[in-house]
């Protein structure tokens, strides 16, 4: 089992090194220290959104959160409006953004775990409500949308060559890995995902576990959107859209199964790095949006097939 758990991250890291080497051959300078730091920054955001999917997919029941993009935009716009460009207000902006994300996640969780609406439909419907609400809010209130200098520095700056945001991601990732694979809650989450009936019979409140999973996803997505505002410099409608597809791609490539019961965040984090390097390589060799989408889809399909093959081989 341990071999299997380590196998995925190692495979992904090997692929990443391969891509980096290919990049260096094609375009000398592709793996300069500045380049690597930059890619780590981008991977940090993707990794955070991948964590959202990891948690809800592990909770099972065809778990999926298609509202991470809308919630991220919500977090970014709310946070920017509150901090209004001032450093002093930045923590409050972050707090309110996360609070809004938790609330949105709670709506998802209640719809899915209590009412029994499929996750796909619930999260898609909620994201259209949030997106629609944001259009109204932004056009009526014209809120401030700039990030405070402190937030810009935190998400953009490097410390001894290591980007601060990557350090933040590493800390969150370490906590997540502990929480998902070592803590009692993580075990309840995976038990719920693997077999909700036996989990309930053995005393796990599966409804609560699922609601908390969607709340976590919402909170992390909103925080991700807030950080993204700092990285981009300002919040705007559609800020988080690109992460809906990519977060699911990295979760699936990282070894999380849609069937639930597994939450290997180490693999997801490596997948986030791999996909970031892949995108930057494709961009560097002038492959446009269309080619990137096709390659994204095909990569996801190949990893799904690999998982399928491994599952058959094990049985």
């Amino acid at each position: 089992m341990t071999a299997l758990r380590l196998g995925r991250p190692l495979l992904l890291l090997a692929l990443t090194l391969l891509l980096l080497a290919a990049g260096e051959v094609l375009l000398p300078g592709f793996i300069g220290p500045g380049q690597i730091a930059n890619q780590l920054k981008i991977a940090s955001f993707l990794g955070l959104f991948g964590l959202c999917q990891t948690v809800v997919m592990a909770a099972g029941g065809q778990g999926l959160d298609l509202s991470v993009g809308a919630i991220a935009t919500l977090g970014g716009i709310l946070g920017a409006a509150l901090m209004n460009g001032s450093n002093a207000m930045t923590p409050i902006g972050a707090g309110v953004a996360i609070g809004a994300g938790l609330a949105a996640g709670c709506v998802n969780g209640v719809g899915i775990a209590v009412l029994g609406v499929p996750p796909l439909v619930t999260t898609l419907a909620l994201s259209s409500v949030i997106d629609g609400g944001l259009i109204v809010g932004v056009s009526l209130a014209h809120p401030a949308n700039g990030a405070s200098p402190g937030l810009v520095a935190m998400t953009g700056r490097s410390f001894h060559g290591i980007p601060t945001v990557a350090v933040l991601w590493a800390v969150i990732a370490a906590i997540a890995i502990w929480l998902l694979s070592r803590s009692a809650w993580g075990r309840r989450l995976c038990r719920t995902g693997a077999n909700p009936i036996t989990a309930r019979l053995s005393g796990t409140d599966t409804t609560r576990v699922r609601i908390v999973a969607y709340m976590m996803s919402g909170g992390i997505a909103a925080f991700g959107g807030f950080l993204l505002t700092g990285y981009v410099g300002q919040a705007f409608l559609g800020l988080g859209n690109a992460y809906v597809l990519t977060s699911i791609v990295v979760a699936a490539i990282g070894g999380v199964a849609l069937a639930g019961g597994r939450a290997p965040y180490g693999g997801v984090a490596c997948a986030a790095i791999l996909m970031t390097v892949l995108v930057s390589l494709l961009t560097a060799i002038n492959i446009g949006e269309s080619g990137r989408q096709v390659i994204f889809g095909l990569t996801l399909l190949s990893f799904l097939m690999l998982d399928r093959y491994l599952m058959r081989a094990r049985h």
């Binding site: 699911i248 849609l258 096709v294 994204f296 889809g297 095909l298 996801l300 399909l301 799904l304």
Partner: peptide
Amino acid sequence: LPSLIATFATAAV
């Protein structure tokens, strides 16, 4: 492959 995620992938293609 699970249709939910596999057709998500083909949608990108």
